[in-house]
Amino acid sequence: MEMEIVEKITNGDRRAAAKLITLVENNFNQAREILKKLYNYTGNALVIGITGPPGSGKSTVTDKITKILREQGKTVGIIAIDPTSPFTGGALLGDRIRMQDLSLDKGVFIRSMSTRGHLGGLSQATQATVKILDALGKDIIIIETVGVGQSEVDIVKVADTVVLISMPGMGDDVQIIKAGIMEIGDIFVINKADKEGCERLTTEVEMMLDLNHNSRWRPPVLKTIATDNVGIKKLLEEIDRHIKYLKESGELEQRRRESAKKEIFDLIQGQWKEILSTFVDNGFLNKIVNKIVKREEDPYTAVEKLSSVLVHSYTQGDIKNDRKD
C-alpha cells in the first residue's frame, strides 16, 4: 500500500502527491510510513525560500521566476504558505491569484498551505512536502511565506537559498527586514523599485549588510519590478551564483546537515508531543496531576518517572501502534 503510493508519486501522479501532502497535514503518523519509503527518491531538488512582508510581491516574484525556470526546461514545485487565523483556525489562501498562468502547466505543482498549529510544527510539514514534490520530480522547489513570525522564518531556513523581499514605502522599511530575519537572507530584493524611496531603502539595506554579514558570501541587493518582469532574470542569475558558491565552498553540505539536524529536532518534538497527547487522552496524565496537586509527589520526580516509562513503552512499540488510526 505505501509502496504503491510512492510508486505513483515517483511516476508523476499529481493527485497521489496532493493526497500525501494532505495526510502529512492531517495525520503525520500515517504519512510517516510512506515518507520513510519515499526518502530514497529525494535529494535531487534545489530549494529556494522566498519571504518578505505582506504586499511586497512575493507571489508575483515566484510567478515570474517560475516562468523563466520553465523556459529553461526545469520543473517547479511551489509551496505557498499563508497564516491561519488565530481566532477561527480557518485560513484564506490567495497566493494562486498571482500564479494563474501556471495552473495549467503540468511542469508546475502549486500547493497552498496554512500555518495551522501543525503537530511538530509547520516546518515539519513543510520539510515533508518538499520531499514529496522532490519525489514527484520537481527540479526546483520554491517555498513562499510571509516573513513576519519566527515560525515562518524557521520554514525558509530549510531552503538552500533564501530570498528576502522588501519594497519601498512600507513605512519603517528596514525595521521589517531587521526583525530577526536579516541574517537568514542570501539575496535581498527590493521589489517595486519604480516606487519612491527605493534608493534610500537600497542604501540602508546595503549599509546594514556591510555591518552584519560575516560569511564569505556577501548577499547582493537587487532591484526588481516583478509585475513588469524587470530584474527577474538577474535574480535567477544571482540564485544560480549562490548555489554555485554553496557547492564550491562546501556550505551546501553544511547547510543540508544543519537542515537535517533541525528536522531531527522537529520530528522528535513532534513525536513526543504526540506521545504525550496519548497520555492526555487516556487519563494517565490526570492521575499524575492529581498526585502532584495533593502533594503526594513533586512534579520533578513525576516527570522523571514519566519520561522513563515513555521511553520504555516507545521502544517496545506500544505507543506507536496505539496511535495508528
Binding site: 499529481r14 493527485r15 496532493a18 493526497k19 501532502i21 494532505t22 491561519t84 477561527t88 483556525g89 480557518g90 485560513a91 484564506l92 489562501l93 490567495g94 494562486r96 491569484i97 494563474q100 495552473s103 495549467l104 505543482f109 502549486i110 500547493r111 497552498s112 496554512s114 495551522r116
Partner: peptide, 24 residues
C-alpha cells in the same frame, strides 16, 4: 474554520479542476 483557496477571476474549467487536484 475551513481552509479556503481563493483563485480570483476568469478561471477556466481546466484551471479550476487542476487546482482542485493540486490542492486536494
Amino acid at each position: 474554520g475551513m481552509e479556503v483557496i481563493y483563485t480570483g477571476l476568469r478561471q477556466t474549467p481546466e484551471q479550476i479542476v487542476e487546482t482542485a487536484i493540486q490542492e486536494d
